[in-house]
Write a protein that binds this DNA or RNA. Structure first.
Ligand code: NAD
Ligand code: NAD
Lengths: 205, 205
DNA sequence: GACCAATCGTGATATATTTCACATATTCAG
DNA sequence: CTGAATATGTGAAATATATCACGATTGGTC
């Protein structure tokens, strides 16, 4: 069965926690109770999540840390290389371009695009900025499935339409708008205002 | 009763949708069914959410768009000005600094800090970068409640401890780590890897 | 080798969230 | 003014998610 979003999120938390923990002090195994304690989750939940991705622990011992990390990475698809294009090399797009953390999740930005003639042709963080006009041919030629969208919000839907028309399968949307796409295309929104709303609401109390 | 996170998230979606819709075509009222249709939510859910923030509609007409937007903004606390400090003026911190979109949510970055001597004293996007040593006195003096954390992940917890010790009430955490803070301090994580996991999982299918 | 303590795996239970169903209220047409 | 149509508001039902309770399994101890 397809994993739910909440499960994926918890799996990532387990993975991050175990990566951090083992980095400082190498340990072989860990119990669901230990993870639960650290992450403020019910231990049963941890075991059910692990069960959902086929992990089996051993009584009185717990789980092999190595196994857990591998299983999460495999299930998530981080071992698979995902080439992606980035569109809109401005403040945010530029920051994402330099981010070295994507690598370990299998994401590699293979081409970047902008509409600004002052930017196209120039280089940024090792990438030559291409004209937005070459977007569709590039995606078709290299069979790209993922696009990272960092353009001004006004053009987001237009670009999304183009991406869809050329067969993109997922859009990582950093622009504050709800994109309309066919059901088989995944849009993952990083709407920064959501975080802000939670913070503002908390500070108001 | 305190609103749940899922409700806050939907309220933001309503707000964004109505802002966008009225921007292009001014309308007075809207029905729960119209909103539900556009956002792919159950209409009952929309009405319950509106009820939760004290909105009443009128039969056969719907809700006053103006009222909805106001109510959301008020409930969220966007009308209240929230001064904030930003820590770590690197790629990401720099991008956030230039972002004009925070204003309409009441967030204003009043001071920025960095530990790099090559950066402190210099100016970025209209802010003079202060030494991290002046962080605590500044927060105390100006009674700052919110900090935006964009430092390397290794120092996140150290900085967070300092922030807590000087009475911060919320941390907007852009670094990929789970911070340990007292229960009365809100940490809002913008863990980019969560988005990536959802995308990678989808592309694997 | 037998027992004890700790841990997993999981069905049953509890809680949270969403959806349904319908009474009530309002608009508009004739 | 009356009736038909279309909204809202909300308790009840359904679904989803999280927690509890406990048998099964394993490792350590004597
Ligand atoms: N800067 C931030 O911290 C931040 C935070 C959250 C969300 N965002 C969102 O991210 C998006 C980008 O923000 P930014 O601050 O980087 O803006 P920016 O203006 O610095 O960058 C936008 C880039 O997109 C390019 N562009 C414009 N039209 C284009 C087109 N049709 N095709 C291709 N490229 C095009 C521009 O030339 C520019 O380089 C915005 O939607 C913004 O709301 C930004
Ligand atoms: N760049 C991205 O697109 C991106 C995306 C997601 C998450 N992040 C996270 O955001 C954080 C910052 O990323 P970045 O790309 O901007 O890195 P960066 O190296 O460009 O910036 C980090 C800044 O923090 C400053 N700093 C270091 N130690 C400090 C301290 N003790 N006190 C104050 N300032 C200190 C550095 O001088 C530097 O200016 C990292 O944790 C990164 O994982 C970055």
């Amino acid at each position: 069965m397809r994993l739910k979003r909440v499960v994926l999120e918890r799996l990532m938390r387990y993975h991050r926690f175990l990566s951090q923990t083992t980095a400082s002090k190498p340990i072989q195994t860990i119990t669901s109770a230990q993870i639960a304690e650290a992450l403020d989750i019910d231990p049963t939940q941890v075991r059910k999540d692990f069960g959902a991705i086929g992990l089996v622990g051993i009584g009185r011992v717990g789980y092999q840390v190595e196994d857990v990390c591998c299983a999460v990475r495999t299930v998530m698809g981080f071992d698979k290389e995902n080439p992606a294009v980035l569109i809109g090399v401005g403040q945010l797009g530029g920051a994402l371009l330099t981010y070295p953390g994507f690598e370990k999740y299998g994401l590699s930005i293979t081409a970047v695009f902008d509409s600004d003639p002052a930017k196209t042709g120039r280089s940024k963080a090792g990438h030559t900025i291409r004209s937005i006009r070459s977007l569709k041919p590039y995606i078709r030629k290299h069979d790209i499935m993922l696009a990272i969208l960092c353009t001004p919000v006004e053009v987001s839907q237009t670009i999304a339409d183009r991406l869809v028309s050329v067969g993109i399968k997922a859009i990582w949307n950093f622009t504050p708008t709800d994109l309309a796409v066919p059901p088989d295309v995944l849009v993952r929104d990083e709407h920064i205002s959501l975080g802000l709303s939670e913070i503002a609401y908390h500070l108001k109390q």
